[in-house]
């Protein structure tokens, strides 16, 4: 009985895969940033009032001025806010519980969104320091940063 009802209300369905196979050009600023990642280097861009945007933008988000002065920043920084994912989804960058975070790298004035491999939620706090973990093979994508990890005690 339950099965009959289920069949009647479920309707017809079929799998459908949708793709938009466009190729995009990344331009002079994002392109240089991604190229830097391939060389294991993180570059931001300086605004006229002296702030360093990481990740860099082609235009100042406040004044809309075109930007071009690149600045290399540190590979460690401070967690500005974070969220704990106890059950990662298939497309997430890590296959075990991890944190998303906005991370302000040393020398930067804005924050970069990435994952932190911290092991357990109790290890996370706003203001904690984290450092980059590079992927073994870098190709010029944001995923060249495999994730961040709590900074090693020095």
């Amino acid at each position: 009985m339950a099965e009959t009802v289920e069949t009647q209300t479920a309707g017809l369905s079929a799998p459908h895969v949708l793709e938009y196979p466009y190729t995009r050009s990344v331009g002079p600023v994002i392109g240089r940033f991604l190229g830097g990642l391939r060389d294991r280097k993180i570059e931001g861009i300086r605004t006229k009032d002296g702030r360093v945007l990481v990740p860099p933008a082609e235009y100042d988000p406040v004044t809309s001025e075109a930007l071009s002065e690149f600045v290399e920043v540190g590979q460690a920084g401070v967690v500005k806010t974070w969220a704990w994912v106890s059950e990662p989804r298939p497309k997430h960058p890590l296959d075990r519980p991890f944190a998303w975070a906005l991370i302000q790298l040393d020398g930067a004035d804005t924050a970069l969104l990435h994952a932190i491999d911290a092991g357990d939620e109790s290890k996370m706090s706003t203001g904690m320091r984290v450092q980059v973990r590079w992927r073994e093979e870098t190709v010029g994508m944001i995923t060249d940063i495999e994730c961040f990890e709590p900074e090693a005690a020095s």
Binding site: I30, K80, T81, P93, W100, A101, L113, T126, I142
Partner: peptide, 23 residues
Amino acid sequence: YYLAPLWPDAVDVAALQARALLD
């Protein structure tokens, strides 16, 4: 370029905002 390849979803980014507000 900066976000989509990492696949943070709608709830993930909202949670970052919620923590910032709590802090």
